[in-house]
């Protein structure tokens, strides 16, 4: 199923968890942390991002700490999926656990900052409406798709345990 279209916010390689959720704010509630999300590298991001937008990045997105506020802050700001060449392993799991879809795509460099894009995680497809292009992304394994379909690990476990 295609998600609604949204703006692509494009970042480079090795975006780290200290940039996503800075340590000095980590004791605070998520809506306070998210105000500082990525401020070291993109001061305008947290204030201008809209619900349904996408984060697009290069390699190793979310590397570093296991603090899941790094993924939760993006969710709090309304980001619905992250498309990257590769992810930090713990971040990938954290994002999925929040129902924030992590998509691995080799063609991210074709997406420009500000492009309108939409995604279909089940089909493994990204559509760039601005450029009228379609890119393939890596298929998510079935086990992980089940977590994504449930909307995250907690609802997935609720179904299983309940």
């Amino acid at each position: 199923m295609m998600h609604k279209a949204g703006r692509a916010w494009v970042f480079g390689d090795n975006v780290d968890t200290d940039q996503l959720a800075p340590g000095i704010y980590i004791k605070l509630p998520i809506d306070e942390i998210s105000k500082h999300c990525l401020e070291a590298i993109a001061p305008e991001f947290a204030g201008s991002v809209s619900r349904g937008d996408f984060v697009v990045a290069g390699e190793n997105f979310g590397m570093g700490s296991s603090r899941e506020q790094a993924a939760e802050a993006l969710l709090d700001l309304g980001i619905s999926a992250i498309i990257a060449q590769s992810f930090g392993g713990i971040f990938y799991r954290n994002a999925l656990n929040f129902g924030l879809i992590p998509l691995i795509c080799a063609d991210v460099s074709k997406i420009g900052d500000g492009d309108q894009i939409c995604i279909d995680p089940e089909a493994g497809e990204i559509r760039n409406l601005t450029k009228d292009e379609t890119y393939a992304c890596e298929a998510m394994p079935e086990h992980l798709l089940q977590i994504a379909r449930a909307g995250g690990l907690l609802p997935y476990l609720e179904n299983r345990l309940g």
């Binding site: 993924a71 954290n94 690990l153 476990l157």
Partner: peptide, 17 residues
């Protein structure tokens, strides 16, 4: 290493993928 939601899953079930 895992994040807190994964940890909660582990604490609830004793398992993880």
């Amino acid at each position: 290493g895992v994040g807190a939601t994964d940890m909660a899953g582990i604490l609830a079930t004793g398992e993880t993928w």
